[in-house]
Amino acid sequence: MALDIITYILIAIGCFFNILAVVGLLRFPDVYTRLHAGTKCTTFGSIFLILAVVIQSINVWVTEGIISSPQSVLTIHALIALVAILLTNPTSAHAMSRAAHRSGVKPAKAVTDDLEKEKT
């Protein structure tokens, strides 16, 4: 019962951060700020949604009293998917921002740009 409530809370947090990523992606003015929204909020939201799946599997174990095989395999594979997301997301964000800066996109409304100063 308590695990059910925890699952609902985790799902609510995950959905909130995902919709926040979408709003930021549509609202911010340039590539770099959009990367902030699109990379960080989706990573955080997916952590909470996958944790909800894991907690729900633990709930099944507690209520039924047996460790059923498909449920545990599902949990372990969901955790591996989470690790894959956590490892690849910052790396691709780094690659995208570097590509954007080298192809000549300037940060909008920037107060300082050290990288541009170093090149000239």
Partner: peptide, 8 residues
């Protein structure tokens, strides 16, 4: 409310 910039 943003105030962006690239720092080294």
């Amino acid at each position: 409310r943003i105030n962006p910039g690239i720092v080294k």
